[in-house]
Design a protein around this nucleic acid. Structure first.
Lengths: 201, 201
DNA sequence: ATTATCATACCTTTCGGTCGGTATTTATTT
DNA sequence: AAATAAATACCGACCGAAAGGTATGATAAT
């Protein structure tokens, strides 16, 4: 009976919690580690005990929190779905809230901020996008197999298109007065999804 | 004969030039005014003579440079167009380059970073998106009038959809190894644009 | 003489990060 | 089981660098 850890890195988790709020609000460059520990009632000692530097903290937060948040929001709900309706419903649910500080918009913000290509953070974010695309592609594959989705569509390409679209909607309409524009996007999204349907004719 | 200015704010323009490079690369929070003036061979005195603070510099650069860049890249080419082909061609041209530091991705990055809603910078960026949407909506209107585009489509909504999509493509595929994903998006974009066409039957 | 345009030096604050010390567990030895 | 050694977890003062911004003064055009 080797009971590993009764309190599994409690302080470390608190730091990651606080990091979530800060990164969501200010992005990577806009996040101050001093403010982070202050608002969370922690200390720099604790922070730098668990994480060697800011970049590693960001990477850990992305991997351990953001990735799972996206998985819970966008991947798990589609796991066994194969209909355009489920996709449509999920999009309307997630994009309708217009929650400005949720995981989706944080992912978008970080992806847009990261110094582009060969950076480590960029690759970590890229993996999240890949998983997301994979989930949608999976749904489309299953939909094709079930005859619900038209044979001619390419799941991987369509999934990339959709992830780009969702990301773009959060970026271009995350201000309060953009609610109307957001609804317009969702309306067109409906029409677009219909074009994927397999016509019974 | 009131010849206003022989050298219309030459140093000021140099500062805006430098600001473009910095904001493109590091976003707003990631831009250091010290580095900005250093890399441009200027001084802080010049900077703060022409701009009272960082936010105003950013606002001026967005209004005087970024807005016109987007206009030149995405709005002017569509000014008198009314065909889906011209839209398709422009998208492939602009998104094919995968220029990581061009105006489009800078706009996306700043829009994703800005502290959301009621901020002044946010509104300035919002105006750019509005103008962009307006240009695409105009093309769709003209296309409808010319019978090239299906009657049932709503130009404003479709334009919002397309701007979100383009923005999302730049955000989700601006790493070097995402070229394949980007092509996938463009491929699906083609299919999507076809669905807007007015079928002659 | 005055105003616009800069350059230089400097200011305050905050940044990411370090360091020595301590309390608490855990492992080892007796 | 007691004593001790050794990590682990954390605090909080501190550091040099860099941040955004100011103050003063020189230069030059009006």
């Amino acid at each position: 009976m080797m009971q590993r850890k009764k309190q599994p890195q409690l302080t470390r988790q608190a730091i990651l919690d606080a990091a979530g709020g800060e990164f969501s609000q200010g992005g990577y460059a806009g996040t101050s580690l001093g403010r982070l520990v202050a608002t969370a009632g922690l200390t720099k000692g604790a922070l730098f005990h668990h994480f060697p530097d800011k970049r590693t903290l960001a990477r850990s937060w992305i991997e351990e929190r953001l990735a799972s948040a996206i998985a819970a929001l966008w991947i798990a709900p589609l796991e066994h779905a194969d209909s355009l309706e489920s996709l449509r419903t999920l999009c309307r649910l997630r994009l309708g809230e217009l929650a400005a500080a949720d995981a989706t918009s944080t992912l978008s913000a970080l992806a847009a901020e990261v110094p582009a290509a060969e950076d480590l953070l960029g690759r970590v974010l890229g993996k999240i996008f890949d998983a997301w695309r994979g989930a949608i592609a999976g749904l489309l594959e299953r939909g094709k197999a079930a005859g619900r989705i038209h044979r001619s569509i390419k799941p991987a390409a369509e999934a990339a298109f959709l992830v780009a679209l969702i990301t773009g909607v959060t970026v271009t309409t995350h201000s309060a007065q953009a609610a109307e524009t957001r609804r317009a996007c969702l309306s067109s999204l409906d029409d677009y999804l219909e074009t994927l349907r397999n016509q019974p004719t």
